[in-house]
Design a protein around this nucleic acid. Structure first.
Lengths: 248, 248
DNA sequence: AAGTGGTCTAGACCACGGT
DNA sequence: CCGTGGTCTAGACCACTTG
């Protein structure tokens, strides 16, 4: 069934292929099931492997498929609804928060977009708390939280701590400040090598980047950059969390 | 410069290329400037065109480049901050809303995910209002708003109207209902053919799909599915709109 | 008509996971 | 070790925009 039907506006093969595969996934496959390998699939549809891969890539982008090198291609479960904006504003690390502290560093250079939000100059010491969000053994997101050392009184003592303990200490100090507000942006990005490893994906994998600005004392006190796996996550916002549990 | 340096973990060529190009964009190119064409660039870097394209695709995904068939590749301006969640909840089509009504249809079949949210059965009449969001002559988003005919009293008369006028009429009727709440989800998708045309992109282009649920009278009264160009948009949420005007 | 990006091919080799 | 998906090549043709 290669190029049987030609229409007035010839549809690209990979696009047609994607449609066919998508319908097949709906009707003939169960979640978790393994598809034939790419070479067999390409032969079956009478296209080059690169063309088939173009279709598979889009389906993976839409969260329909999951591909793993050395293993194969499987039918993905519906996207997980992930609550991003809690009902009440709260600092990261507050009780009931789904994140696990991983580690903490101090640096005097931060991404320029973060420095602009924090209004820090080059050379200012900034705590970088790294956290990870996991559900059902699947990594969902990786986060870097930037807190200028200047906003935390006793931060010099933290140098004695390492790893999660140090992360905890920084988060602890935040809770005592009064949180006046917060806002967020969401945009598409591609995973940096470091995040990719934490998310169990290859570098460059599509991610949803959530940048949260925490306001206290009239200024931006902390900035969190969270990268969510775009293939498996659906971010949810709003007062009712009910929607977070709806299947896709 | 082909495979000169081999590291312990050999970096893919396209990844390295992307890094090199990204730095060149920062330092040597101005927004709007036209890059050399793909064949020349590939030759200059000593790689196949497909490999170069893989790097360009990622840069376009990240909003750094803009490619147009028949024209060329240009350096993209920073992403536009787009306010998605207004300070106070309001119905679509309320005063001060950035959307332009395009048209309106009635259908008895809606996407299954929408039907589930609206709790409509197959065969129920649903108004589908199509709107478009534009800034500075650039299309940002396309939207389909689904409103069951049952929730709008005098909707039978709307059959006399067409196009934007009919869309207006449906939106008008919504304003009289009391809006009790709303929530949203954001996920990655690829543009359907129809949306792609409206967004001035090719089918399959990456989009951020925002699904908004409007609650009134204790049930979901309307559902809006808005698809934003992922390459050019940064969605903003939160009480202060200040962040919407920060450059990326 | 010329030049651009978009699609497609038929190969090849590599990195990784499981056996 | 084998089989998987990931990377890469060197071509070809097509769809689109512009002069």
């Amino acid at each position: 069934m290669g190029t049987t039907q030609l229409e007035t506006v010839p549809e690209p093969k990979y696009w047609h292929l994607k449609t066919v595969l998508s319908e097949a996934l709906d009707s003939e496959f169960a979640v978790g099931e393994i598809l034939p390998n790419e070479r067999d699939l390409a032969a079956r549809f009478g296209v080059a492997r690169a063309t088939l891969r173009q279709a598979l890539e889009q389906l993976e982008l839409e969260g329909r498929l999951q591909r793993r090198r050395g293993v194969g291609t499987t039918v993905a479960p519906p996207r997980v609804g992930v609550a991003v904006a809690p009902a009440r504003h709260s600092w990261p690390g507050a009780a009931g928060d789904d994140w696990q502290p991983v580690g903490c560093d101090v640096s005097d250079t931060v991404p320029s977009v973060v420095a602009r939000l924090l209004e820090t100059a080059a050379g200012d010491r900034v705590h970088i708390v790294r956290r990870s969000r996991v559900t059902q053994d699947r990594p969902l997101a990786a986060e870097s939280l930037y807190v200028p050392a200047a906003v935390i009184p006793g931060s010099a003592q933290f140098d004695l701590l390492t790893g999660p303990a140090r992360a905890h200490a920084v988060l602890q100090e935040l809770q005592s400040l009064e949180l006046e507000g917060q806002d967020r942006t969401v945009e598409l990005g591609s995973a940096r090598a470091e995040d990719a490893k934490q998310l169990d994906r290859l570098p460059g994998a599509p991610v949803l980047v959530v940048t949260t600005r925490y306001v206290s004392g009239g200024r931006t006190t902390a900035v969190a950059v969270s990268t969510y796996r775009a293939d498996t996550c659906r971010l949810t916002f709003g007062e009712s969390d009910a929607v977070a549990f709806l299947a896709g």
